[in-house]
Design a protein around this nucleic acid. Sequence first.
DNA 1: CGCGGATTTGAATAGTATCAATACAGGTGG
DNA 2: CCACCTGTATTGATACTATTCAAATCCGCG
Lengths: 243, 243
Amino acid sequence: MDDTRRDIHNSEVPVVCQSCEARHNGVCGALNEQELVQLSKSTRRVCHLPGVELIGDSEEIASYSNIMHGVVKLSKILEDGRQQVVGLQFAPDFLGRIFATESRVTVETASKVELCKFPKSVFDAMLAANSELEHRIMVQTLRELDEARDWMVTLGRKTAAEKVASFLYLIATHVDPTAMDHPDEEAVFDLPLTRADIADYLGLTIETVSRQLTRLRADKVVEITHNRHVRVWRLSRLLDRCG
Amino acid sequence: MDDTRRDIHNSEVPVVCQSCEARHNGVCGALNEQELVQLSKSTRRVCHLPGVELIGDSEEIASYSNIMHGVVKLSKILEDGRQQVVGLQFAPDFLGRIFATESRVTVETASKVELCKFPKSVFDAMLAANSELEHRIMVQTLRELDEARDWMVTLGRKTAAEKVASFLYLIATHVDPTAMDHPDEEAVFDLPLTRADIADYLGLTIETVSRQLTRLRADKVVEITHNRHVRVWRLSRLLDRCG
DNA sequence: CGCGGATTTGAATAGTATCAATACAGGTGG
DNA sequence: CCACCTGTATTGATACTATTCAAATCCGCG
């Protein structure tokens, strides 16, 4: 390899951005080299353990992030403590509500999470100057809206058994997007959420989630070891149970 | 009145656009006079009765619309017929999923509806040329996402009684956005949806919706006449029941 | 090995759906 | 103007699903 060769991938791009997924599939793909350099100056990589609150409901937004690794949950909490997870975000999603001063959801890490964090002010300035950047976020927002609407069907109209199957299918296809193309093969993954998180996502209790998982195991649809490790024997059999 | 006077509101703006709410509060506010003229050439005002399907799930998108009047429902249907309403849209909302070739929802009129309809191709060309236009749709999309997430809490975590109260509150505040500022006053409106639509929006059966409405009436929270006409005696008492 | 949190399992209960029958509203024709 | 008719909404009785409360078990970790 001739490392004097300079191409679009390493010429002036900051080192931290060079192999970054957010630049290839996330919002940073809309930034030119100069913008990348500028943003990377105020960027910080941060890691969090599971269950850490990143921002609370109605809290002022001071920064945005890209998710580098892990799963982040967005949730809403009623006064009496009832909680509903309203979204899950995966790498390389952009994290933050632009065009608002306050968050409308509680943002928490579900798994171990690594973020690439930058100040709202710097990013907002780039948003105003670079309409391709807003476009990238628009595309993600439309996808989130599609996903939210898909999930509303699950919440409103599916049985507990169908909800749990739908959740497993969602995780399986997020972990490996190509899995959908091989419906008769097996899928193996680790659940990034606790039973309590799953229950809050599905609008169920943890006991009901547990019972339905037990049933899926008894029916030889999945194998679950160590509470978190899931093997779906045939994805199509899981899909059949999603309603 | 001196009708030779020419100001920003009537100089070159097409007659059909001059008093249009979509130009003041909707997406057309992003268009300049020339663009308005161009778009209005291929624009058609159309009226529909309640219960008319405007576009089906997975159907190819040929046009977009602005809602001039009435209520449009977006829904999803499972193979076995179970249906979930995933969004309601009111004037002057923009109607259509940009950056997609197929609809991801079934779009139906809930009430009598008037649309201002234009071809996808014409509008898409303007979208590409005018980033302020995309920005307007971005703002609406973010609002829709916020609303979808609010509703996910209702679907996943509220009781039937709370769901019905939340629905009435939603309609009351949509019909009169200033109502929120006067929580101790009464609110009067007509339901734009049938009991079946309400049930599909709330993830309930029509019987349960009916029973909960009866209860709200018995508890002197609302008065309902002619099935559709609702008087909320004190909005704050309704809000108390939203969970 | 034993501790503490997470998960599973069990029994009783509550809430909503289902099925069936009745009442109501709005439109039509006599 | 009224009787009728049709679709919509309400009410009632029962079944079923998911919750609640309680207890047992599993898992990771020191």
